[in-house]
């Protein structure tokens, strides 16, 4: 693996069909190390499916998605390459947050103290010994992020990570992702909150109907055409408002 490839996320020609619906259609983009890449698109644009294919949870029908040059499922130590936070991550309601993390420490061969370290890092130190059924949505997001950080990965892949976080939590997450990218690592995250993306992202990838609409730096996309919201709405406008792409 070359230094240039470490942490780089590459999606090329990625396609996934569910029955007759093509969720992702020949999608290609990259997310480079040292930058925060915002992954944007309307509901049903295929963002979640794309991120799940990157994480090896959904098998693509065509194309490839790689991290550090390899498919996630082929990585020798996947948790050290990419930390993944999925939308609506699940926890066993009767298991404590700390035990949840310790399970995956054991599975990945990390020392158990990593569980306490990432709990502290995500502000869950006090809640770690409580059962997950009592966690708020924001705490669940923090626990999912804690699990993604267990392996101290070189890339972070996050699906709507700010969902359920309070303003303080969002500011905290912004700082964490920014520091993560500044240390030369990769951040790819999907979001609906465009002002948030404008504050944080260096690069932006916009998809609609499973296809790439535009990718580039934030400045390239918004140059002389107002804010990100206007650009996003004009790029992802549908022929008939409210009708799913058919």
């Amino acid at each position: 693996m070359t230094a240039r490839e470490t942490g780089r996320i590459t999606v090329s020609g990625l396609t996934k069909r569910f029955g007759r619906v093509t969720a992702v259609n020949g999608l290609s983009f990259t997310a480079a190390p040292g930058a925060v890449t915002g992954f944007l698109g309307p509901n049903g644009a295929g963002k979640t499916t794309t991120l799940r294919m990157l994480a090896g949870l959904v098998a693509p029908d065509a194309g490839a998605a790689t991290i550090s040059g390899h498919a996630y499922t082929r990585l020798a130590s996947p948790g050290r390459e990419a930390g993944v936070v999925l939308e609506a991550a699940g926890f066993h309601p009767a298991r404590t947050g700390r035990d949840h993390l310790r399970v995956y420490c054991t599975a990945s061969g990390y020392p158990l103290r990593r569980a306490d370290e990432v709990l502290a890092l995500t502000g869950l130190a006090a809640a770690g010994r409580r059962k997950a059924r009592g966690y708020s949505l924001g705490m669940r997001q923090r626990l999912a992020l804690a699990a993604a950080l267990l392996g101290d990965p070189v890339a972070l892949i996050l699906d709507e990570p700010a969902n359920g976080l309070d303003p303080e939590g969002i500011a905290w997450l912004r700082g964490l992702l920014r520091d993560f990218a500044r240390s030369g690592r990769t951040v790819l995250y999907s979001s609906h909150v465009l002002p948030e993306v404008e504050q944080l992202a260096d690069h932006v990838v916009i998809v609609s109907g499973g296809r790439l609409v535009r990718q580039g730096t934030l400045a390239e996309l918004t140059g002389g055409r107002g804010g990100l919201e206007q650009v996003f709405l004009s790029l992802t406008a549908r022929p008939v408002p409210g009708c799913p792409p058919c």
Partner: peptide
Amino acid sequence: AGEFRHRTAAATFLATPR
């Protein structure tokens, strides 16, 4: 099957893709 019910299957297969 509980891993699917509680949606922990994703975390499990992220830690161990094989």
